[in-house]
């Protein structure tokens, strides 16, 4: 079910967390709110959930005005970065909480909890306490708990932020699959552009309490709306008035048409990919991405002088 966010503003003391933000989230979509810390993305998510009240603006859920509703009336599922597990309850009791509060019949609760335990691959963990689970398991439990009352929308606030890299990668794929199965409108907050690009259909890029761009991952990368999006989503460096991606630069040992002199500062071998940090003749550092073969042919080494030519540039008015 869709979410409509209209002219939301929110201040915390002197800090303008959100400044007249409007955005639509389509029903059934998987959307990322992406931005650096302090960009207002978490605040916006919490306002949608009713955990924070905006100073002005409106929120509609599934076409109905929800601005005046308390969190328990909004029918949203919320997943916190640090799980917010009910520590004194077992996994089963945690997941059942939302159903018990709604006074559903006992056998229905038991059936639904069993279903959800299977969905989040925690069968056999039902009688454990959260303290006996790993971080990834706890977050899956929190997800099952949020999904139990069949929320209209599922909101996740940096859901993988507290997990280590491997579990994080696993859960990303898993969230994607879960969404394909349930088709619940899902919005998650992240500061990790790779996570946003990998998981979401639609990415809302935020900065300083405003929305910079709303687009699919591919469009975001290929056609960024402005310099902020260009530099925040993927790497980019400036060449005169234009911006260039690290893989859109050609290096050559000899000067050529439109090329500039640069010195190699560092070379990192990352398997197939080689990433080189260079310093331009005007002292500006920038990065280049090459294949292993290209790097070998150039015999890249620290201190070496090379010539750089952009193959594709982006300029903003």
């Amino acid at each position: 079910m869709s979410i409509e966010i209209r002219n939301i503003s929110k201040r915390f003391g002197d800090f303008q967390a959100l400044d007249d933000v409007s955005v639509d989230v389509d029903g059934g979509s998987l959307t990322a709110l992406l931005g650096p810390s302090g960009s207002g993305k978490s605040t916006l998510l919490r306002i949608v959930a009713g955990l924070e009240w905006p100073d002005s603006g409106e929120i509609s859920l599934a076409g109905e005005d929800a601005s005046g509703l308390t969190p328990q009336k909004r029918g949203v599922g919320f997943v916190f970065q640090h799980y917010a597990a009910f520590k004194h309850m077992t996994v089963r009791e945690n997941i059942a909480f939302g159903l018990k509060v709604r006074k559903r019949p006992k056998d229905e609760i038991a059936r639904r909890v069993q279903e959800l335990l299977a969905l989040v691959q925690l069968q056999g963990f039902g009688d454990r306490f959260p303290a006996q689970l790993s971080g990834g398991q706890r977050q899956r439990m929190a997800l099952a708990r949020a999904l139990a009352p069949e929320p209209k929308v599922l909101l996740l606030d940096e859901p993988f932020g507290a997990l280590d890299a491997r579990v994080r990668a696993e859960l990303r794929v898993w969230l994607r699959r879960l969404h394909e199965e349930t088709h619940t409108t899902t919005v998650f907050v992240t500061h990790d552009q790779e996570e946003a690009m990998e998981v979401a259909d639609n990415v809302v890029v935020m900065n300083k309490g405003r929305i910079e761009q709303v687009a699919g991952p591919r469009e975001l990368y290929d056609a960024p709306a402005n310099e902020f999006v260009m530099s925040f989503v993927g790497q980019a460096s400036r060449f005169g008035a234009a911006w260039v991606r690290p893989h859109d630069l050609r290096l050559s040992p000899t000067p050529g048409d439109g090329s500039r002199e640069a010195m190699v500062d560092r070379v990192a071998h990352l398997g197939f990919e080689v990433r080189a940090e260079l310093v331009r003749d005007d002292g500006e550092p920038f990065a280049v991405q090459l294949t292993r073969n290209e790097a070998e042919q150039l015999e890249l080494a620290r201190g070496q002088i090379v010539y750089v030519r952009p193959t594709r540039e982006t300029t903003f008015a």
């Binding site: 959930a49 009713g50 955990l51 308390t70 969190p71 328990q72 909004r74 949203v76 599922g77 919320f78 916190f80 640090h82 917010a84 597990a85 009910f86 520590k87 004194h88 909480f97 939302g98 509060v101 709604r102 929190a142 708990r145 949020a146 139990a148 009352p149």
Partner: peptide, 25 residues
């Protein structure tokens, strides 16, 4: 207060949240 917030989003009112979440903690 995250556990309490979680309880709210799961449909629990202030009273239920106090008895079921805050008090046991």
């Amino acid at each position: 207060d995250e556990q309490e917030q979680a309880a709210h989003t799961l449909g629990a009112g202030a009273w239920t949240t106090f008895w079921r979440i805050t008090l046991p903690s």
